[in-house]
Amino acid sequence: MSQATKSPQEPAKAAKRAPAKKGKPPKRAKQGLLGLEQKRNLTGWTFLIPAALLITVMSFWPMFKAFQLSLQIGKNKLEYADPLWYNYVRLFTKDKTFILTMKNTFLYLIIQVPIMLVLALILAYLLNKKDLRCRALFRTAIFLPCAISLVSYSMVFRTMFAKEGLVNDVLVGLNLLNEPINWLNEPNAARAVIILGLLWRWTGYNMIFYLAGLQNLDYATFEAAKIDGAGPIQTFLHVTIPQLRPMILLTAIMSTNGTLQLFDESYALTGGGPSHQTQTMSHYLFEVSFKNNSNFGYASAISFAILVMVAVLALIQMRVGDKRD
């Protein structure tokens, strides 16, 4: 992606970037102006305080407590396990269901997230044409799925993918299938339905981030590209995408995070079935916490496993995508 920076349109971008290097000139004059710099730095910190404080108390403190829990066993009265990492050993070496849900979750991640983000990017790009009519209509329609209640969405999807449902009727009618598939009762078909459901629900959501990002873009760069005679696809690849990089990174982290913590589709669309074959880690976590004999120590261990996986992936993504210069 960094190759793109060397494209012919770069001058315009560079021109914009240049003054952005935070008040470098005054740096020499030590006495008065560095004080100003420090003061600004301090202002920046005060701006962060409310948000950081809230997150610390509302997330990190409970997370720390949850970590303590993850080292404990017992159903009501919890005690520290011996060895302390007992729950983790059990999770990764003995719990076949967890391993299965982990595989499922990563399958959704690998297949669904790239397709969704590319599709969202394309849709945003298509929508962002000034002379396109009915833009508001398209934009609304494509965004709507994520605003629709999970109850009706799952009912509709289950009906459509029922054995005698619309999807089978169409596919058989077009001779694409010889006999109807029992979508929700065959592991791979059911997984495909979950991926389709996710695409349906979240593509428009990601699209609006790209749209917002496109709105904030610097139009001068597009003019420059036009003058240089770049075609639409070239412009898209070499001007739009590099400038959208912060937003692409954001959506990628967010989608990865969302998919690894995926609960809704597994719970409402397939119920995790047939027999855990489509279940996600978070759905399993929920069952361990509240459905059966609640085992909070073990559930906390599951949640920490998820946390570490998300964190590692996010770090990788940030390394790849968050290059400042």
Binding site: V57, S59, A66, S300, I302, L307, A314
Partner: peptide, 20 residues
């Protein structure tokens, strides 16, 4: 560090948060 908070599954922090 703050980003880490985004990755915490909610079910895990619910009981401590409830106590808080």
């Amino acid at each position: 560090i703050l980003l880490l908070a985004m990755m915490i599954p909610f079910a895990a922090t619910m009981i401590p948060l409830f106590q808080l």
